[in-house]
Design a protein around this nucleic acid. Structure first.
Lengths: 142, 142
DNA sequence: GGTCGTTTTATAATCATTCTTATCCGATAA
DNA sequence: TTATCGGATAAGAATGATTATAAAACGACC
């Protein structure tokens, strides 16, 4: 998928971002690649069009895009390992902003429907569910 | 919470782990701390009882406990940033073993029930749900 | 075209985590 | 109890992802 310069300019303006060539190419690389890509993957793709680009630029722009809502982060957790000794069935409420995790009790998944959508071979033995949103503190800030 | 040496020995035997003092103290530190703790947090707690313990030992044991199911990992994602350009409502199916992410469509959350359990102030504006399990490939391996 | 603030580049720095190696300890058999 | 062996630990180096820094380049507005 290629956006025209004009299209990207509009998109950027709507989100308060300056327009640069690198930025456009990074954005297009993510959109073109259906899937969940790492910064390195994006970097590799972008380098085919701008060989001189630096990895830091990719990181900078991905972060910017996430911040202004153009992209979604697939790893919204704290970036470091967390461990939970509670093996009872429970679910997690995760703040997309500050990455805090709270437990929630209760069964609120329609497993019948869910299993209809789960591809063959995927084993839902531990259907731990993580629900994302904004915690009270972060909502107050925003 | 303190386990007797005998209790821990049983627990370890059931999971095929050798019994060491360090191991017991690490395990107890996680269980005693209700919440979602990082290796550094656990290290700090354990050092109060075994000042000479090394951070690597904490990491080793946490990994072991997770592998044999004594603990649950709260950050089951790939450890590196992943980015998703698909802003349409969809959910994720995450493999707890290999951390791969697949999209799934469909509405299978009972929002009425869910919202009953969500604490005041938490804003479910983006109720992206991640459902964990074992993907086909990892299930075949196990 | 000139100026100013932003972006990019290149590289250094940081942080979490894992690896390496030597040493130590727990479990088993004599 | 002691000898032995394999796995566990300690200490620190190494790795890999990400972020910070500083200088050069660029875009936007005049």
């Amino acid at each position: 998928m290629h956006l025209t310069h004009v299209q990207f300019r509009e998109l950027a303006a709507r989100h308060g971002l300056a327009v640069t060539h690198q930025r456009q190419v990074v954005y297009e690389a993510v959109i073109a690649s259906h899937g969940h890509y790492s910064p390195e993957d994006v970097y590799a793709a972008v380098r085919r069009r701008i060989p001189s680009i630096s990895l830091a630029t990719v990181y900078n722009n991905l972060r910017l895009f996430i911040e202004c809502g153009l992209l979604r982060e697939v790893t919204p957790h704290a970036s470091t390992l967390r461990v939970d000794g509670n093996l009872e069935p429970h679910h997690h409420l995760v703040c997309s902003r500050c990455k805090s995790v709270q437990d929630i009790e209760g069964e609120f998944i329609d497993f019948k429907r869910l299993s209809r959508h789960v591809p063959d071979g995927f084993d839902l033995t531990q259907p731990l569910v993580e629900v994302f949103g904004l915690c009270r503190r972060c909502r107050a800030k925003a």
